[in-house]
Simulated assay, not measured.
Amino acid sequence: MARILAGKAALVTGGSRGIGAASALALAELGADLVITYAGNKDAAERTVAALVEKGVRAYAVKADQSDTDEITNAVGQAHEKLGALDILVANAGVFASATVDAEDVAALDRMRVVNVEGVIATIRTASKLMRDDGRIIAMSSSAATRVGGSGVADYASSKAAVEGYIKGVARDLAARRITVNALGIGPVETDINPNSGPAAERRASGTALGRYAQPQEIAAVVAFVASPQASYITGAVIPVDGGAGA
């Protein structure tokens, strides 16, 4: 595979496992050096870094709580310092909490909003200041934001809809520097924290046209394309990677 991202420096938040780890590995396959952030699972982060290094790139892990702006700023700064540059940001870190509108305990919902919205905004804002021209910013959204509703997901959907609105404005802000800013509207993906088993998983899978969950590598392949030179004319877009959930 051509190493078309050789010499590029990438930061993947929430990169220790799942979609984040798969995205980091896909970028490493193309030659990008990487920093991944993790919230608490240091062992998983170190395993991912080892797998990245095996691809022949430089790779580092930085601990960062996505609900803490100071830690976000520090992590982005460390990524720039360790790699000597910053060209690609994959704002992948996020959390999910479910509750109907009449729920009384909303602490988890409040934290989700902070991580999924304020954390993403802080990451993008900080990274954009350090990023070289012709960079790539890719945020993870969800088919729940605009296409697929459901009981108990209103707060999650609204957090992802906020991200989609944000990236469209930032795409205009950074266009003069040829930095593209996009989001992926992903459907159900099989990970260790989102297993493809049980009645709820069957309902989610049946809601897609393809009738199945995605694998993290399928999302990562789109991340790699959007990060590549071939995607230079795509910006301000929410690209559906949802198995036809919105079809």
Rank of each mutant, 00 (worst) to 15 (best):
N116T: 06
A91Y: 07
A75C: 11
N74H: 11
D102V: 13
H80Q: 11
G119S: 02
V76M: 08
V120Y: 09
A108E: 01
A75K: 02
R111M: 02
G119D: 01
E71H: 04
L83R: 05
G84P: 13
H80S: 13
A108S: 13
G94E: 05
V95R: 11
I72H: 11
V95A: 14
R111I: 00
G77V: 02
V120S: 11
G94I: 10
N74F: 12
D87R: 03
A93P: 03
D87E: 10
N74S: 15
A108F: 00
A91C: 12
V95G: 13
G119V: 06
A107K: 13
E118D: 14
A99T: 08
A91R: 00
S98N: 09
F96D: 02
A91G: 13
V115P: 03
N116F: 04
L86G: 04
E118M: 15
A97W: 04
M112P: 00
K82V: 11
S98K: 12
L86P: 03
V117P: 01
D105C: 05
Q78V: 06
E81A: 15
D110A: 09
V101N: 10
M112T: 00
V114F: 07
V120C: 14
V106T: 14
T100E: 15
F96Q: 09
L86D: 00
D102F: 12
R113V: 07
I121E: 11
V106D: 08
V90R: 03
D102H: 11
A103W: 09
F96I: 14
L86M: 09
D87L: 08
M112Q: 10
E71G: 04
V95I: 14
G84Y: 14
N74M: 15
L89R: 06
G94H: 01
E118T: 15
M112F: 01
L86Y: 01
N92G: 08
A85N: 15
A99R: 02
L83G: 03
G119C: 03
A97T: 09
A97S: 14
V115D: 07
F96Y: 13
G94Q: 06
V114D: 12
V117F: 03
D87P: 06
A85T: 08
A122K: 09
I88E: 03
Q78W: 05
S98P: 03
N116S: 08
A107T: 15
F96T: 07
K82P: 07
T100K: 08
A75G: 07
N92F: 07
E104V: 11
A122F: 06
M112S: 05
A79K: 07
R111A: 02
V101C: 07
A103C: 13
Q78G: 10
V101I: 13
F96V: 12
I88C: 06
A85L: 09
D102A: 10
E104M: 12
A99H: 09
A122V: 10
G94C: 07
E71L: 08
N116V: 05
E81S: 15
A85Q: 11
V106F: 11
G119R: 01
L89F: 06
R111Q: 05
R113Q: 12
D102L: 08
H80A: 13
N92V: 08
V115N: 00
H80L: 06
Q78A: 05
N74C: 10
A93G: 05
N116Y: 03
T73P: 01
V115R: 01
E71V: 07
D102T: 07
A103D: 12
G77P: 04
F96C: 05
A75V: 14
